[in-house]
Structure formats: C-alpha cells, structure tokens
C-alpha cells in the first residue's frame, strides 16, 4: 500500500521578505503513518509524568511553536499521544530529567510530543539526546514556565545517515520565568529546528546558546522567535556554527517587540565559520518593533577566520589547516562548555 503524506509549510518568518531569496519558510513532507518512540528516561523524584495530556494550571494556554500552526494541526491529525510532565511548586531539582532517543531504522515516521510544565518557583534541567538513524523523526516540546520558574533544556543531536530530523519547541513564560536553551546540532541528513518563546510575564527571560556543525551534503533550516509581550522581558539568542563541504544552512532569528513590552531588551548574534567554497550560508536576523521603550540589537559575522587571528596562530607555529580545525572545534566547545559538569555522560559528545 502506498504511504500517504502531508505537505506542511513550517519555519515561517514573522515578516516575509523577497520571495526569490527563498528564506520566507520551508516546505516539508511528513508521513501520515507515525508512531511514538519509546525513549529511555531518567525521571527525577518529584517530577510527575502523565500520559496523554498536558497537566497543571497553565495547560489551557495555547502555545505557538517555531514550526507554526501547520505542524500543530499535523500532530493532532496523527493522534500521537502527548507525554505531560509537571514539577512541584517551589522545588529546585538537583538531578536533570534525562531522555535518550536512539532511533533504529524504521519505515514509519517517529513522533514524540512532550508537554513540560515547570510550576511556580521551581527549576529543572531537561537533557534530550538524539542518536541513531531512521527515515523521519520529529520531537516537539511544549514548555509552560510558571512564575519565577526556570527550565534549562539541553538538546544534543548526533543522528547519522540521511535521517530527516524535525525539532520544534514552543515556550510560554509567566512573570519572572526563565527559559534557557542549549542545542548542539551535529548530525542528520536534513534538520529542521524551530523555537518560539512567548515572553508573556513581566521580567521573563529567554537565553539560547546554539552550536551546529554541518558538512558534506547535509542541510539545516532554523527558525527562532523571541516574542516579547511582557514588560521588562529579555531575550538573548546566540548561535554559532561551522559549514563544510556542500552544506546548506538557513538561520532565521527574530526578536519581536509587541506593543506594551516596555523596558524589554533583546539581542541576537550569529557567528558562522565557512570552510569550503561549496557551502551555502543564509542568515536573516529580524528585529520587529511595535514599542518605543525597548532596546534591540542583532549582529552577524560570516566568513573565514579573521586574518589577524590567523596571523597570530601562524606566528605560534600553528598551520592554517590546524588553525581551522581548532576554530571548528572551538565553535562547538564554546557551547558544550556551558553545560554543567556531570550532566552529560562522558561519551555524549566527541
């Protein structure tokens, strides 16, 4: 029997630009026949897991993701069961919630849809490692962050072969809520990453530190949106990466200041090291501003190693080839080093 598929438009820019640049969105085809993957999990004591629904006082809030509405509809249509998690009020968890997804080749699509509620005053680290090989896999996290609560989400992706990987996140943060995202993107044939973070509560914060390495014929398509609606909210989107071979990468980053977010601050920066002339790097960092009393900034540096740095390294006896190898590693290490010691197993990233 022929497999049926759904064609979706995901990773839409909040404001479109010239169509001929092909940056406005991504069109993808996902299978209608899907199943959840039974991942390995270490659940800290005091974190509740409920199958089939989101739980807690924020469960009715509709949360948008970086991929957008098309994906939401698709997940609903597949009937895949949501896994809900909730922390206890005011509790700071010493141990992270760890999940491992080691895919084994399958003809069916894989979907895991998680709903994480970080209750008021609590803090939790969630580590998700994705490895192995399959045709198509999708991981979606909906994160509800309560008052003065904090969630650190660490995602490490080391998929092999031609796996198509879809990683989508939607966040809603109440007063004083904080969302910290660390992503290390190292594998997969084609990867799509999305994040939309609604900074709705006064003083809520978003911080992202993302590192990617894309080589050979691999593709990476990203869309990160910080939606400032609350007063004195802050966002800091930091992305760095390396492109080699025929790699193609598209980074969309948006800071969206909505009317009423007085005192908000947002910044985003991307640093891309280009190794080969055959790479394609596309970057579009947006600032959208509907509020006067804000500060927004973005920057991008794209290209080869700075001549003066290269000269310095040569003067220390390091060849150009070695210098590039060092800088490639440094791009990734600078983000890995942000992960607290002991959270990852020793062999997680090599």
């Amino acid at each position: 029997m022929e497999q049926s598929n759904s064609t979706l438009t995901i990773n839409r820019l909040p404001v479109r630009t010239w169509n001929r640049l092909k940056l406005n969105d991504a069109t993808v085809v996902l299978p209608d026949a899907v199943k959840p993957y039974e991942y390995f999990e270490e659940l800290p004591e005091g974190v509740d897991r409920v199958k089939g629904k989101s739980i807690g006082p924020m469960s009715d809030i509709k949360i948008a993701t970086g991929f957008g509405d098309d994906l939401d509809g698709y997940i609903n249509d597949t009937g895949v069961m949501i896994s809900g998690y909730i922390t206890e009020d005011g509790r700071e968890y010493d141990k992270p919630l760890k999940q491992k997804y080691v895919y084994a080749d399958t003809a069916e699509g894989i979907i895991n849809a998680l709903d994480l509620t970080i209750s008021d005053g609590s803090s939790l680290t969630v580590v998700q490692e994705v490895d192995g090989h399959t045709s198509q896999a999708l991981l979606r996290n909906i994160c509800r962050i309560g008052k003065n609560a904090s969630l650190t989400l660490i995602q490490i992706q080391k998929l092999t072969g031609n796996t198509e990987f879809y990683n989508d996140i939607g966040v809603y943060a109440e007063d004083g809520g904080e969302f910290n995202l660390i992503q290390i993107i190292l594998g997969a044939g084609s990867s799509y990453y999305g994040l939309k973070c609604a900074l709705a509560g006064t003083g809520s914060k978003l911080s992202t530190n993302i590192a990617y390495s894309v080589d050979s014929d691999r593709r990476l398509d990203m869309n990160y949106v910080a939606d400032h609606t609350g007063k004195r909210t802050e966002s800091d989107i930091s992305v760095r990466g390396v492109l080699k071979g025929n790699a193609k990468k598209l980074f969309r980053g948006s800071i969206d200041f909505h009317k009423g977010c007085a005192g908000a601050k947002g910044s985003e920066i991307e640093n891309v090291l280009l190794i080969d002339d055959t790479v394609t790097n596309q970057t579009i960092p947006l600032i959208l501003c509907d509020e006067e009393d804000v500060e927004g900034a973005h920057g991008a540096t794209i290209g080869r190693i700075d001549e003066s740095l290269l000269f310095y390294m040569r003067s220390r006896g390091i060849s150009e080839e070695q210098a590039y190898a060092l800088m490639e590693q440094a791009q990734i290490d600078s983000v890995i080093n942000l992960i607290e010691e002991g959270i990852l197993e020793h062999e997680s990233i090599e």
């Binding site: 002339d277 394609t280 920057g299 540096t301 794209i302 290209g303 080869r304 700075d306």
Partner: peptide
Amino acid sequence: AMDIRCADVDVG
C-alpha cells in the same frame, strides 16, 4: 538577509 556562497569572504 544574507546569502553567502563563497567561504573566502568577510560579512558583517
């Protein structure tokens, strides 16, 4: 928007 298809460049 930036669309870079050559490594030996400097774009800021």
